[in-house]
Design a protein around this nucleic acid. Structure first.
Length: 648
RNA sequence: GCUGCUGUAGCUCAGAGGUAGAGCACUCCCUUGGUAAGGGAGAGGUCGAGAGUUCAAUUCUCUCCAGCAGCACCA
């Protein structure tokens, strides 16, 4: 038998017979490793202990102490155990696929009746029995024909389809958990008893399309979460609770920010508190943009279909547009309009009015543009995904040579905005030319090169998303990570030679001839609605002082303090602080509780002592400690704190 | 849009084939209390909308609307 060389993590190499398995290697190293081993990394690939190694390779043996492989195996084996449990209980249910995902796994089943929450309990109990049985896991590679015949005989059409989708050069691998068999890429554990029985939970059922395709049948999906031990599971359940507690829909109600109602699905009724956040943020963005060389415009909401036909939206996006038909009494024909779903065509109209010279470029045209999109009902989510929203939109009209500098300028701008709003870092996804595209390869080379060197010039981290660009140009998407690790796409930067072409935008060049400008679509927050939702969830409602809708409540302890409370509120208001009096006939405990729940960042309590000394007792949200401060001092300090970051 | 679940007072929820209840919030009264709920009284509902079954529907059935979770979508 031929020999191969395996290299271990410590650098030692060893000659072994070809075809040896990691299990055999672990057994050879030590009895305890053999017992603890769960899988291996072979040339970096996750490797089943039972798979033979045929060529020289680097190898490392994994144990439960290796978090990533351990979690992958636990979750993947649980997917199989769950599918087995389901088929044991309901033998006619067809199985499909069950991948590992964040924090757990899911498995899709074909079954006429959806699973109920009670079913989940039964499945979970059955799974625990399978784990307790410590059933061995084994694997075999089958010829394609044999596997196909097997699944056809077993009446598992989805498995047959999966088989046909496995590329010809990949082995067809079968796994058994006890007697229950599944087609699976692997790797897996060695027996079901290795799965921690107290560290998983089935969380929910839902429908999902076969292969994610909404023209294919819907399947019943069961989700589970799993960890290496009970404590990790508990920690994750706590995390889910925490995420729910900071849900902007709940905080929006508790802080009295906005409401939504049936008559206007997907649209926001902003209350005074929420609108204060909105306008404060908008004022800030307006100052930032002005400082960065943007001009601001405003364009119509209701626009005749003719413009949308020219821009191409009527053709491609009509089902997402609110159509407005106006049938005037004496009109010869109905006017058909659409609420604008985006601002770009209107901005080109502004650009086109009057001749533009190369001296006007780059022209940075901004609008807090209210847009309406008929989003699918199932997509609506609080103020995060709505049908009526306002973008912090801008279009930069420029020459090809100006793209790089404009891109770098924008990334710098966005970086400073995100920092001011409490996000210290962001990631860029650079989407490059798709297969179906317009424009020459040279043009694409040039524009993509401009974007990439712009990113590099500002030193921002980025990843490339090959083929994900628009058909007319590449784009950058900017992702923020919030306080509990969720990722949000907010900013975008897109190069577009197409719309200027369609809508006939030109400028007079140095040579006296007409030229076509590029149009750069860019947004930093995305939409105010969504970004405010993100801000709320990121901060759990404890917004930075300058953005907090209610900044200070001045609360009386005794009614003798009422006049002085009024004086304090007036002084704070004069200093630019949003302050309000609470002189209700309630105990200070009650007031503190209520305003704490309302996420008011500062409570100033006023009793007899404060009146006499002309001081206040300050308490910050979330802190128990209080401090006594002179009125002049607190007014100056809070006034400074209320100043937006770009002005301080 | 698809699948499932849900819709009762401002909020969180109970309830039942014979037209409704709790806690909190709200209003009034008592209480002037020192940092996360002081006490009492009162007011408040076309039970999401429409149709059907029934002597009788908020309750059962159907359709629609909206919300929630997931999927699909996000120009």
């Amino acid at each position: 038998m031929s020999q191969i060389t395996l290299t271990f993590p410590d650098g030692n190499a060893r000659q072994v017979p070809a075809g040896i398995t990691p299990a055999e290697i672990a057994a050879d190293i030590s009895k305890s490793l053999s017992k603890k081993a769960i899988s291996a990394q072979v040339n970096g690939a996750h490797w089943d202990l039972a798979w033979p190694i045929d060529a020289d390779a680097s190898i490392a043996i994994n144990t439960m102490a290796d978090e990533n492989p351990a979690l992958e195996l636990i979750r993947h084996d649980l997917a199989h155990v769950m599918a087995r449990a389901v088929q044991e209980i309901w033998p006619d249910v067809k199985v499909t696929i069950g991948p590992v995902r964040d924090f757990g796994w899911f498995y899709d089943f074909d079954r006429a009746e959806p699973f109920t929450p009670e079913d989940l309990g039964e499945i979970e109990a059955r799974m625990k029995r399978i784990i307790a049985a410590r059933d061995p896991v084994r694997t075999e590679v089958w010829p394609r024909d044999k596997a196909r015949a097997h699944y056809e005989a077993a009446g598992e059409p989805f498995k047959v389809e999966l088989l046909d989708r496995i590329p010809g050069d990949e082995p067809i691998r079968m796994y058994w958990h006890g007697d229950w068999q599944d087609l699976c890429r692997g790797p897996h554990l060695q027996h079901t008893g290795q799965i921690p029985a107290d560290a998983f939970k089935l969380t929910r059922v839902s429908a999902a399309y076969w292969l994610g395709d909404n023209t294919r049948p819907q399947l019943q999906r069961i989700y589970g979460i799993a960890f290496r031990n009970r404590d990790d599971l508990k920690a994750h359940l706590k995390f889910l609770e925490e995420a729910e507690a900071r849900d902007h829909r709940r905080l929006g109600r508790e802080m009295d920010l906005y409401h939504m109602q049936e008559e206007a699905p997907g649209q926001v009724f902003w209350h005074p508190n929420g609108w204060t956040i909105y306008t404060t943020l908008q004022d800030y963005m307006r100052r930032k943009q002005r400082a960065d060389g943007y001009v601001e415009v405003n364009t119509p909401q209701v626009v005749d279909r003719a413009l949308w036909e020219k821009s191409g939206h009527w053709d491609k996006y009509q089902e997402h547009m609110f159509i407005v038909e106006v049938d005037e009494e004496h009109a010869r024909e109905k006017a058909i309009n659409a609420l604008k779903p985006m601002n770009c065509p209107c901005h080109v109209q502004v650009y086109n009015s009057g001749l533009k010279s190369y001296r006007d470029l780059p022209l940075r045209m901004a609008e807090f543009g209210s847009c309406s999109r008929y989003e699918p009902s199932g997509a609506l989510h609080g103020i995060m995904r709505v049908r009526g929203f306002t973008q912090d939109d801008a279009h930069i009209f420029c020459t090809e040579d100006q793209i790089e500098a404009e891109c770098a300028k924008f990334i710098t701008f966005l970086d400073s905005v995100y920092k001011d709003l409490g996000f210290d870092s962001f990631e860029i996804a650079f989407a490059t030319r798709p297969e179906k595209r317009v424009g020459s390869d040279e043009a694409w080379d040039h524009v993509e090169g401009a974007l990439e060197s712009a990113i590099k010039s500002v030193g921002a981290p980025y990843r490339i998303e090959e083929g994900d660009g628009a058909f007319y140009g590449p784009k950058l998407d900017f992702y923020l990570t919030d306080a509990i690790g969720r990722v949000w796409q907010c900013g975008t930067f897109q190069v577009d030679p197409n719309l200027p072409e369609r809508l006939g935008a030109t400028y007079i060049g140095e040579d006296g001839n007409k030229h076509r400008p590029y149009m750069l679509h860019r947004a930093c927050l995305g939409s105010f609605e969504r970004f405010i939702g993100i801000l709320i969830e990121n901060s759990s409602g404890k917004l930075p002082f300058w953005l907090a809708p209610r900044q200070v409540v001045v609360a009386s302890i005794v009614s003798d303090a009422d006049d002085y409370v009024g004086e304090v509120v007036a002084a704070l208001t004069k200093a630019g602080v949003r302050a309000e009096a609470d002189i209700r006939n309630e105990k200070i405990n009650y007031k503190v509780r209520e305003h704490s729940l309302g996420k008011v960042p500062v409570i100033l309590a006023i009793g007899k002592k404060e009146v006499e000394d002309r001081t206040v007792t300050l308490r910050r949200l979330g802190e128990k400690a209080t401090q006594v401060i002179a009125l002049d001092e607190v007014t100056a300090a809070l006034g400074a704190e209320a100043t937006p970051p770009d002005l301080s």
